Amino acid sequence: MSLCDDTLLCNFTKCRTKLSGFAWVTACSHVFCDQHGSGEFSRSPAICPACSSALSGKLDIVRTELSPSEEYKAMVLAGLRPDIVLDICTRALAFWSYQVKYFSLYMYSI
């Protein structure tokens, strides 16, 4: 897996399925398939199954569409200042970098 790969894997230890459609993303930079995210994050308080972080903030867990429409992509950042857009891009790239590292560590451990 490289930073340019467009496939994420579920970070649930016993799953590791390729993600498509919808996924659950956490503030601690983990991502889960819709099935495991729905099950794990329906409990309160929510705990990340990958790192045991408490997820109590309003946006600590987000269910997101992995292939959003062109209309959504055209409007989601519209009106934001360039420095905010660049900050969002930086955070998104950091997430992917973390996932690449996480995948490498997982592959090394099996």
Rank of each mutant, 00 (worst) to 15 (best):
Y72I: 08
F32A: 09
A74H: 08
R16Y: 03
K73I: 15
Y108W: 13
G39T: 04
H36V: 07
A78W: 07
E65F: 07
L55N: 00
T13I: 08
F41V: 01
F32V: 11
A78T: 10
V62M: 04
K14E: 12
S104K: 15
W96G: 14
A92N: 10
K101L: 10
G21C: 05
S97V: 10
S53W: 00
P49D: 00
S67R: 10
L105F: 08
D83F: 09
L80W: 06
F32D: 04
I84P: 04
M1W: 10
D34S: 11
S52K: 03
F12W: 02
P49G: 01
R63P: 03
A23Y: 01
M1K: 13
R16S: 03
A27C: 11
S97H: 09
A50K: 09
G21M: 07
S38D: 04
V31A: 13
A27R: 09
I110F: 12
F103G: 13
A27T: 10
D5C: 11
M107G: 02
A92W: 08
K58H: 09
L93M: 13
A92V: 14
S2D: 14
A54N: 02
V62D: 01
R16P: 00
G37F: 10
S104C: 11
R43W: 00
L55H: 00
S104R: 15
I110K: 15
R91H: 10
V76W: 00
C33E: 03
S42P: 03
G37R: 14
F22M: 08
R81L: 13
L3F: 08
F103V: 15
N11Q: 06
V25Y: 03
D83G: 01
L19Q: 03
P82L: 08
L3I: 14
V62C: 06
A50Y: 05
K14P: 01
R63E: 08
I47M: 02
S2M: 10
C89N: 13
R16H: 05
A50C: 05
P82E: 11
F41G: 03
V31R: 06
D87Y: 13
C4W: 11
P45N: 01
T90Q: 11
K14A: 12
R63K: 15
N11Y: 01
V62A: 08
C89R: 14
C89Y: 12
F41M: 01
C15M: 02
F103N: 15
L3Y: 06
Y106N: 09
S20K: 06
